[in-house]
Design a binder for these strands. Sequence first.
DNA 1: ACGGCTTATACTCATTCGAAGCATAAGGAG
DNA 2: CTCCTTATGCTTCGAATGAGTATAAGCCGT
Lengths: 321, 321
Amino acid sequence: MAAGRDKSKMYASDGRPRELKVDLVAVVAAVTDNDPRALTISQGSALPAGPFEMGHRSLQAGLRDWVEQQTGQALGYIEQLYTFADRDRIPEEQARRAISISYLGLTRDEWSEGGPPRDWQSWYDYFPWEDHRAGAPSIIADAILPPLRAWTEQQGGKAREERRQRIAIGFGIDGRPWNEELVLQRYELLYEAALVEEALRDGGGARAPHIPGRPMIADHRRILATGIARLRTKIKYRPVVFELMPPVFTLLQLQRAVEALAGRLVHKQNFRRLIEQQELVEETGETMSETGGRPAKLFRFRPAVLMERSAAGTKLSVSRS
Amino acid sequence: MAAGRDKSKMYASDGRPRELKVDLVAVVAAVTDNDPRALTISQGSALPAGPFEMGHRSLQAGLRDWVEQQTGQALGYIEQLYTFADRDRIPEEQARRAISISYLGLTRDEWSEGGPPRDWQSWYDYFPWEDHRAGAPSIIADAILPPLRAWTEQQGGKAREERRQRIAIGFGIDGRPWNEELVLQRYELLYEAALVEEALRDGGGARAPHIPGRPMIADHRRILATGIARLRTKIKYRPVVFELMPPVFTLLQLQRAVEALAGRLVHKQNFRRLIEQQELVEETGETMSETGGRPAKLFRFRPAVLMERSAAGTKLSVSRS
DNA sequence: ACGGCTTATACTCATTCGAAGCATAAGGAG
DNA sequence: CTCCTTATGCTTCGAATGAGTATAAGCCGT
């Protein structure tokens, strides 16, 4: 009910009205050396971001401005992710309230010509539990599940059962399959259980020891998780990987990029079948023999399909090996 | 580049800094009498909406407050839709800039007890071209495609081809199938072609005659289109229809609700198989014989699946008849 | 030159899933 | 008691999916 709002919070202790600030935050992704990366600032502790200002022509334009200004990286494809408000726990003295409108951008990790080098950081430095390309990381069983289970025990009855269920689904235990798309759910779980630094920072009260994984300022790690989740979902039904690829590539390189993003391996033969039957690529005629085996044909993306089939998909069929 | 921003726009002509306003806008959906409806205010000319204020505990909480205050309707399930900024064409004198954070809410169309009656309006009053349950509406061929084609002709070369393609995909012509999810793309097309009232209002300059379909204030009709599109997509992979159903229902009622939302018919037998094999419902033991044929079994939703399979889906398999 | 290693690419097979249609059951109306 | 209507059960067919086997084409060291 409207009665729930508390007018007193609209003013800071000095009597000035609190500001409502709108920030634009970018998750910019690229793949280099088979590692998915995010563009960061401040030595990897924050995502490119800045306030939305009156002069910006649009949200997207404002975002592009900030990213380019802070990192020198021009953006191609971008899409909106989510709009976050501050978490509940704002210190009383803090006389402003921030809204973060987040975007996902895809780009190639090109060299900056002049200007400072760009600060690309591997996703998995922030989310070491998300890379399952070499099987489930040991830190899940060693460092994550034990404290999560302890957290479960703090509750009784239905609430406990619900936590168990969320953990089982999120981390793929009790015979459930690992679902690489649940990046955000996993992070939120760890946040709620106060296993990530951000939770202690926000919530106060020392708690369980942290688990591995680099924190970020404010809720930037949460936003990054949202971006990764979105990309992992989208890659399955839209040919967005190509935004991250060089103009010419082999099918194995393409597959490695998809695997890097998804954090899991795909069945090679089926992957190729899918790509080719959807006519997403065409041969350049050239081949490449860098990897020691039979030379691979080089391909390029067929931009025609972008228009042709607005519903094309680069699905990945997961395998074990 | 940052240089693109124009600081002069940050101040109105009277020298005061322009305000940045954040609005919460709700698309609240229900199904009554086999018609999908949206909750509106002002005789159907606007969606429930209000500013996000400091006192709101969260975006969601603020939205619930406004909807309940303006319509008396309490909300259950809600999810964020999209965040819009004003369209480019703001009159120079207008000393504020608005951001709209939109949400989709699902509810049953229950009777308001006390308080004013709620203002539910059929989706298809706003988007008459979206209801294909009785085949493609004639207004598409009669009132929409001719001016759209004329609009196409205004351009030459590649741009013209691109418009053609967008129209073909959006409206399912040239042998393409109708895709009910492209609600927003269709509306944007009509907006760009200045065939909806909102475009004239925003853009100035009288143009082609309007096509049928009620307008709304600001960009509320665009937001409604976004909500419909989201719901039509989501219904296929998540059991969200049940939020819109009474506690007990027959399978045909369920099917009719899905059809109302999707704006197209589904294959009855396959629909039932899908619902039952996914164990989304259970029999109540009762039957209902209101429709003149064999009495139908009554079912209720099994909330257990919400937890069990976080990836369950109520897919709809489309048919022609 | 040749066997062995590596990667690329072609084909096969089984299972599931999706779309569509046929058949039967069980009420009410005339 | 027959016809109409709706409910519900079952088959069929083909496409898509997941997984495995087989073959090709380079390089490398001996």
